Simulated assay, not measured.
Amino acid sequence: MPANSKYLNPAFWPRFSKITAAILGGYFVSVTFHLALAAWFNRANVLITMAFTGFILWVALMIIAFLAKSGWKIWGIYLLLTLLFCLFIYLGQTYNHTAQ
């Protein structure tokens, strides 16, 4: 049984924004989250753990992006999270560098 056409979005840009938010945005959030953890905790342990948890988080963020109503809103959320985690990376490296 084919999908009901009223639920399909034929427009290119909404579909493109969801796909890119899922792949690129989810990846950026996943990587910056784990790098922020590495800036504050034991770097080697976090980066080894990232091989598994990073992929799981990335897939979860992909699913969230496709469940969202607007691809542009999810892009905005993912960019804000990425910038927030970049701030945590910067603060963690600054604090830990001066503490040594």
Rank of each mutant, 00 (worst) to 15 (best):
M1P: 14
M1G: 12
P2F: 07
K6G: 11
K6T: 08
K6L: 10
N9K: 14
P10N: 04
P10W: 00
A11F: 13
A11C: 15
A11K: 05
A11P: 10
F12W: 08
P14L: 06
P14S: 04
F16A: 11
F16R: 10
S17Y: 11
S17M: 07
S17H: 14
S17I: 06
T20P: 05
A22S: 01
A22H: 02
I23Q: 01
G25A: 05
V29Y: 00
S30F: 00
V31K: 00
H34G: 09
H34R: 10
L35T: 13
A36K: 00
A38E: 02
A38Q: 06
F41S: 07
V46C: 02
V46R: 00
L47M: 01
A51Q: 14
F52I: 15
F52H: 15
F52Y: 12
T53M: 09
T53S: 15
G54A: 03
F55G: 08
I56E: 09
W58P: 04
V59I: 14
V59P: 02
V59C: 05
M62H: 09
I64R: 09
I64S: 08
A65K: 00
A68D: 08
W72Q: 07
W72E: 11
K73Y: 03
K73W: 08
I74D: 01
W75H: 05
W75C: 08
W75I: 00
W75T: 05
I77Y: 06
Y78W: 00
L79I: 11
L79F: 08
L80I: 12
L81G: 01
L83K: 03
L84E: 04
F85K: 02
F85R: 10
C86K: 12
C86G: 12
L87K: 11
F88H: 10
G92R: 03
Q93C: 11
Q93E: 09
Q93D: 06
Q93F: 12
Q93R: 15
T94W: 04
N96W: 12
N96D: 04
H97E: 06
Q100D: 06
Q100C: 09
Q100K: 15
